[in-house]
Design a binder for these strands. Structure first.
Length: 472
DNA sequence: ATGTGC
């Protein structure tokens, strides 16, 4: 399957597959470790007509229909949209809040335990539907995003401006096509964490010397405690994605379009089916950004409980890694799918939100529970990859394989349990979250090295976990 | 990822 490969400098590989060209950004070690199946998947995706561009970030791994780590671009006017390329965790993304605290302020495990307990009081992590915010109209949220939230839940203006997008505008008429049970099942989920790889972490940061000016300009300092949040659109996006994948399968059969991978579905962006999906996907993006906002609001309350009313947690940034966005590239409106890929715009780029126009915005990249996460910033050279970088470490092995292979003891050791710099976890036993252990993920430092070496982005700060909150 | 379901 893997055809001729042209290796460029800067970790950039161009692979000629039977149905088109795949770009891969990875250092030699990471590139060498890619499974053959990812090329088969890329080729199936390249069968979709009029593809303008397709690439893998170094964290790419096999997913349903399309690999996680894919950037796939079509022109708006004659291109395609694919629910399979977006994936079902629509709008999943990252958010970071700064604190005025130094890591020594929370070094005492008793303080961190208190914080974990307080956060769990405000952010439901176990039950599926028990939002603390019954007074928020979910339809306002999906229509207007952050601007659909009551004022009392917006602590300051930054919470509306330091985000990739506060409101995704779309044609609200398409909401009438929404199956009623999606509305029902998403009720009461706003501000809840979800499960799987979703988390809230308290981290201590180290600014990278090469980008100290950028970091300090953003309000970062060495040893600073930050809160990193990873969550998505919960049931709203999951059900929407599944619904449209199912109905598009039938529509494709009707149109006489087929793909060797039955899990890979797509429609012309201008068709009714394509437009319906795109518009409703934006409702899920509105839900997702609002969900992370309300999780952060809960975390802020928890910090006030522990450290007093005066403490504030300004938002650094909120951005996503699962979506399809209309973006202007190469003098044309394009539809850019990012499935497990993060936009990292460089300083001065016109698509940057106002607050980060001159510096470029923070690109937030989670590691795994026991390893560092990263705050990065895009470079001009990222244009060659439509400004996409990795979305995290990327899974190394499946949840099942992880549970068979890794012991609870090994997991505990990787969290330094029993030592004074133990990474605290909200779970009584590590057994319940064994499939999320660091051993389940690729080496994040290798992934970041690949991105930096490809000149797609620079590291601004490393964030080391001190406490982890996960759902089940 | 996720309404617990074909």
């Amino acid at each position: 399957m893997k055809g001729n490969t042209k290796h460029h400098a800067n970790n950039h590989h161009e692979i000629e597959l039977p149905h088109g060209r795949l770009h891969v950004f990875a250092n030699p070690d990471v590139f060498g470790a890619f499974e053959p199946k990812v090329y088969e998947m890329a080729d199936n995706n390249l069968r979709i007509p009029r593809s303008m561009y397709m690439s893998y970030t170094p964290d790419a791994h096999v997913g349903v229909g399309t690999c996680i780590g894919t950037t796939a671009v079509w022109r708006m006017r004659d291109g395609f949209v694919s629910p399979s390329i977006v994936g079902v965790d629509i709008g999943c993304g990252m958010r970071v809040h700064l604190t005025p605290l130094h890591k020594r302020d929370i070094q005492d495990p008793a303080v961190r335990r208190k914080l974990i307990e307080a956060i769990e009081r405000y952010v439901p992590t176990n039950e599926r539907t028990n939002s603390n915010y019954a007074d928020i109209d979910i339809m306002d949220v999906v229509r207007h995003g952050l601007r659909g939230l009551p004022d009392k839940y917006v602590p300051d203006a930054r919470w509306l401006t330091h985000v990739e997008e506060a409101t995704f505008k779309f044609d609200h008429d398409f909401l009438s096509e929404l199956p009623a049970r999606i509305r029902r099942n998403a009720h009461g989920q706003l501000g809840t964490l979800g499960s799987g790889n979703h988390f809230i972490e308290l981290q201590a940061i180290e600014i990278d010397e090469g980008r100290r000016e950028t970091g300090e300009g953003w309000g970062l300092f060495d040893g600073q405690v930050v809160v990193m949040i990873h969550s998505g659109s919960r049931a709203w996006g999951a059900m929407l994605g599944r619904e449209h994948t199912k109905s598009l399968k039938e529509t494709m059969a009707l149109w006489g379009i087929s793909n060797p991978d039955p899990n890979l579905v797509y429609a012309p962006a201008v068709s009714h089916e394509g437009k319906a999906y795109l518009n409703l996907m934006y409702s899920a993006l509105n839900f997702a950004v609002s969900n992370r906002h309300m999780i952060a609001f809960g975390v802020r309350q928890a910090f006030k409980d522990v450290f007093g009313e005066a403490i504030e947690l300004p938002v650094l940034y909120d951005l996503m890694h699962n979506y399809a966005l209309k973006e202007f590239h190469r003098n044309e409106p394009m539809l850019v799918h990012r499935k497990g890929a993060t936009r990292a715009l460089p300083p001065g780029h016109f698509m940057n939100t106002m607050a980060y126009k001159t510096t470029g915005h923070p690109a937030l990249i989670p590691g795994s529970m026991g390893t560092a996460s990263y705050i990065m910033v895009g470079r001009d050279e990222g244009a060659k990859n439509f400004y996409s970088i990795c979305h995290g470490a990327g899974r190394l092995r499946s949840r099942r394989a992880t549970k068979e292979l890794v012991t609870v003891d090994a997991f505990a050791q990787s969290l330094r349990v029993g030592t004074e710099d133990e990474i605290l976890v909200n779970h009584r036993t590590l057994e319940t979250i064994l499939d999320e252990c660091p051993q389940a993920y690729k080496d994040v430092d290798q992934i970041i090295d690949s991105v930096v070496g490809a000149k797609l982005a620079d590291v601004v700060a490393r964030c080391k976990p001190m406490a982890v909150i996960k759902g089940v």
